[in-house]
Design a protein around this nucleic acid. Sequence first.
DNA 1: CGGTATATTGATTACAGTCAATAAAAGTGG
DNA 2: CCACTTTTATTGACTGTAATCAATATACCG
Lengths: 246, 246
Amino acid sequence: MNPLTSKLEHFVRLSSEDKAALDRLASEQMRGFGPHTDIVHEGQPPKVLRLMLSGWACRYKLLEDGRRQIVGLFLPGDFCDLSIFILREMDHSIAAITDVTLAQISAETFNEIAFAQPRIMYALWWESLVREAIQREWIVSLGRRDTDERIAHLFCELFIRMRSVGLTSGCSIDLPMTQSELSDIVGVSAVHVNRTLQALRASGLVILKGKTLTIPNLNALMDAAQFNTNYLHLDHEGAHLDATNG
Amino acid sequence: MNPLTSKLEHFVRLSSEDKAALDRLASEQMRGFGPHTDIVHEGQPPKVLRLMLSGWACRYKLLEDGRRQIVGLFLPGDFCDLSIFILREMDHSIAAITDVTLAQISAETFNEIAFAQPRIMYALWWESLVREAIQREWIVSLGRRDTDERIAHLFCELFIRMRSVGLTSGCSIDLPMTQSELSDIVGVSAVHVNRTLQALRASGLVILKGKTLTIPNLNALMDAAQFNTNYLHLDHEGAHLDATNG
DNA sequence: CGGTATATTGATTACAGTCAATAAAAGTGG
DNA sequence: CCACTTTTATTGACTGTAATCAATATACCG
């Protein structure tokens, strides 16, 4: 299934017309990007709406001396920029982490669908509120969690986000980042990430082999990270907007 | 002038009807909160839309062992929660820092105004995108800036945000936070905040007296913080939506 | 004016950064 | 498929920044 549809159904039950509309969004002009290439640069005007279909990408900001911070991750089913109609220029850049395919949706198509299908508009609003909540949680991690907790917390989040779009296999997900990229998320040096990962492995909470992350006991990892799922709001919160037997 | 109106006019020129509608929002049921009291708790359902009229407030999250991280600041003219229609429960708490007065806006009033005045709807959308951008910038600070830079950057942001709602006097703003609250924003210990503030004072970049922050040379402080205003998007970006000579 | 909250200081400890070297893995071309 | 190159991961030694603990000073409040 379309990963966007999977995800939005955690919020609200969609009618078959809703789903058809989402499939139409996901089949708009497709475009591919290779790993480690920029999709949009800071300073550019946001022109199209981008929807991730496969692969991983990230938002990041650079400081003058080369320090880099990743401020968000895009997984399949995520929108990259809902600011097209509003903001003049990007205040950050977006880069592919792996091979990425995305749908580039024009303002017209988007407007057409959003206005014809109000449930979809609500679902997209929900998506942007969740994105905001994720950013808040990242702020908490960077400000007040130590490195073990940061990484454990991130792994919980990624596992659950991947599961919500149907991309887990058992207790495992693909984790296609280098340790250096991970360090730009959790705000420590790459060397320290390496050591922390070793500690996490030694504790048995995670298994990392190649580009695969396995979490043998999700509850144990969630405990270690003091992870509370509430901020992902995956609990069918828009039930009052459900399609009447779509 | 209504601080909300001041702020939104950085995005788009409003008609007199728009302004009247905003004044109506700002005069909805008023409510006061004393310093250090909670306005909403994590876990509660968001029931009304809150608009800050005066004072300072913050969003925060607590960890089990008492560590606290402030994940956002509310200044006059800011909305506290635009999630009323969507999310079932708050994933964080909101507390007053100073004496706070806010308008509590019902869903009905809000809908009425938002639908009658599309420019206002766009302006509120802009506000929420800016809030998201501010969160990203906080992530960058916590992840990749050292403590001097974090505080300098925060002070620049606060000065400019206060200026956008007409609350500066010359080079000064009210800064009604304790060092301990500041430490919960920048993610270090209160002792370390104290030492860093002394260094900033010694460098002449800021003057802190009582609860007043004075920035004698904003450009110098912005340089020190590598502060780029772009993320606040105050540059009349919605010009194409302007009222035609309202 | 006393009492509480906030700010400041010093001494010590712990966590994380840096630098540099080596090992392992992944990608490339013949 | 192998040899070679490049990237990524791992390790150790050393340094530096910030946390913690505890004491004292100052400011604020009724």
